[in-house]
Amino acid sequence: MYIDDIIHIAAEAGKIILENGGETYRVEQTITMICKSYGIPHTESFVTPTGIMISITNSENQTISLIRRINIRTVNLSKVSMINNLSRELVINPLSIEDIRGKIEYINNLPAYSQKTTTFFSACCAGFFTLVFGGNYKDFFVAFIIGALINCLSLCLDKLEVNSFLKNMLSGALAAFIALIATSLGLVGNMDTIIIGSIMLLVPGIAITNAIRDTMAGDLVSGISRSIEALFIAIAISSGTSIVFKIWFLLFGGTLI
C-alpha cells in the first residue's frame, strides 16, 4: 500500500537523524518534507529523543499511524547531513519507492570510523584541550594517554551495554586516577589541567546544543529531556572524579605519594 510505504520511509529517515545526534525539529521537518514530496499533504509527527510518532492522511482520507522507538543514540553528523540533503532533493525530484529505500539503507549502513581512528583522535583531543587550558608538553602526553584509554574503556563498556551514567562516571574516575598517579610520580605538575582537558571528551556538547535549539524551536519536551540528560552526564563525570579523589585522600591523607 502506497501510504504505508511512505510512512515507513519517513520514519526510517527520521530515526537515522535522531540516532545520530540530530535535533527533534529537524526530524519532524524531514518527515513532513518526505510525505509532501509523495503527495501526502496532511502529516502530523511528535518526536522525542527516545521515540517517533507519525500520523498521515492521504487525499482519500486514509489515515495510518506509526511509532518508532529509539534505543541507540550516538553522534554521526554526516548521516544527519545526508538524510537532510536527501529530503530536500525529494522535494524537487521524488524518487521511486525502491530508490529512496535503497538510498536510506545505504546511508544507514555507512561504516563508522575504525576503533584505531577514534582512539587516536580522542587522545589528540584530550591532549590539545590540556594545552588550551594552560598545560605543558608533559601534560599533553599524559592527557593523550588518558584520552586513548577513555575511548577504549567506552568501547568496551558499549559492548557490555553499560548505561551512559556509569560509563561517564568510570571514564571520569579513570582520568582522575591516572592524573593523580602521574603527578605523584613527578611526571607532571598540572594535575587539574590534565583532568579538565581529559574529561572534555565526555562533556555533552551535542546534548547541550540540541537542548537549546529544541527549546528555541518550541519542542519543550525534547529540550527539557536533553537538558536533564546533559545534567546527569555532568553529575556522572564529577561523581567519578570525586570518588577517586576521596579514596586517594583517605588512603594518603590528601598528599601525593
Rank of each mutant, 00 (worst) to 15 (best):
F140M: 03
D139L: 11
G197S: 11
F144Q: 06
L153C: 10
K159R: 15
E161L: 12
F144C: 09
A179K: 13
L170E: 00
D158M: 11
L201N: 09
E161P: 00
T193P: 00
A217W: 11
F177Q: 02
L185G: 00
G186I: 09
A207R: 09
T193Q: 01
I145E: 01
L187G: 06
A148Y: 02
G147E: 00
S184P: 06
I194K: 04
T209V: 11
I199Q: 04
L187A: 13
F141T: 13
F165G: 03
N210C: 02
A143E: 05
L174Q: 04
A182K: 11
L160G: 01
N163L: 05
K159I: 09
T209A: 05
F144N: 06
F165L: 11
K167Q: 08
S198F: 08
G147Y: 03
D139P: 07
L201F: 05
R213S: 05
N163H: 08
G186L: 07
S154I: 15
I199W: 05
V162N: 03
A217D: 11
L187H: 13
K138N: 12
M216V: 15
N190T: 13
L149H: 12
M191K: 15
N136F: 06
L174F: 08
V203A: 08
D214G: 08
F144H: 06
Y137W: 15
G218T: 08
D214Y: 07
M200F: 05
A207W: 04
G186A: 03
R213Y: 06
A148M: 12
I195D: 00
A175F: 11
A143G: 07
I146W: 04
A179Q: 10
N168Q: 02
F144G: 07
A173W: 13
M216R: 14
N210M: 03
N190E: 13
T193H: 00
N163W: 02
N168G: 11
L153A: 11
N136K: 11
A173I: 10
L174M: 12
L202Q: 07
I145K: 06
N190L: 15
G147S: 03
A179T: 14
M191F: 07
L153F: 11
N210E: 00
G172E: 00
C152V: 15
G172V: 05
S164Y: 14
